[in-house]
Design a binder for these strands. Structure first.
Length: 217
DNA sequence: ATCCCGAGGG
DNA sequence: CCCTCTGGAT
């Protein structure tokens, strides 16, 4: 493992102080809406997703609603989000599968979720943890970047390897909240471009940050 | 490894 | 202009 549990505890405590109230920022009122929102969120800011789903969720309430309009109409309704053709197609396949296999409901297990069209490991983790209360650590672009910068994972590690490292280092009952805090940390502080290293509480244990601060001076 | 793909920020 | 955004399928 790249770092010790003792160091991880220090990181967890610091993140708790920085973002005590971190939570899912995708607007949703049930598991189905959350699944659609996460599917739409690929390579897109959640802010933009919320703008689109505000109207989308008024128009489409159930899997059947998404199948009752032409594909072009659904594409139009999510067009402001990137990758809209693939996403529209995946939403349709997802809805067909929900109707065919689960009576139109979203299944509750990770194994069932990843079998759905357009739903991968990351999306399944978000759904089970946020909608069904199952501990999970979804590794997205933020969690991956932050974990590697802090030395929680190695630069060459795959997304799955990053997830395993986090699971090993973090107590299970803290997986979900830590996932959200890592997201907030990556989104608002340890950003992809111009991270705020010089004012970071974790600078003392962050090699990457120390390197960046030194280069800047 | 590549493609999808609009929109906002620096 | 270029980079990035709660990825997944091929």
């Amino acid at each position: 493992m790249a770092i010790t549990k003792k160091r991880m505890r220090y990181i967890l405590d610091t993140l708790q102080e920085m973002f005590p109230d971190a939570q899912c920022e995708l607007t949703h009122s049930n598991a189905f809406e959350l699944t659609i929102a996460v599917l739409l969120s690929a390579q897109c800011t959640d802010k933009k997703v919320n703008e689109v789903t505000k109207d989308l969720f008024k128009k489409y309430k159930s899997p059947w609603d998404y199948l009752n309009v032409p594909l072009e109409e659904l594409e139009h309704d999510i067009k402001r989000i990137g990758l809209y053709r693939n996403k529209a197609k995946n939403i349709r396949k997802l809805c067909e599968s929900l109707i065919e296999n689960y009576g139109g409901e979203v299944p509750r297990t990770h194994e069932q979720l990843v079998e759905l069209a357009g739903v991968g490991r990351k999306t399944a983790n978000v759904v089970v943890s946020n909608a069904f209360g199952v501990p999970a650590i979804a590794v997205d672009t933020h969690v991956e970047r932050v974990s590697k910068r802090l030395g929680i994972a190695r630069w060459k590690d795959s997304v799955l390897e990053v997830e395993k490292s986090l699971q090993h280092l973090i107590p299970k009952d803290e997986w979900t909240i830590t996932h959200h805090r890592l997201i907030f940390f990556g989104r608002y502080h340890c950003t992809a471009r111009n991270p705020k290293c010089s004012e970071c509480p974790l600078l003392d244990i962050c090699r990457e940050g120390q390197k960046r601060v030194k280069v800047a001076n």
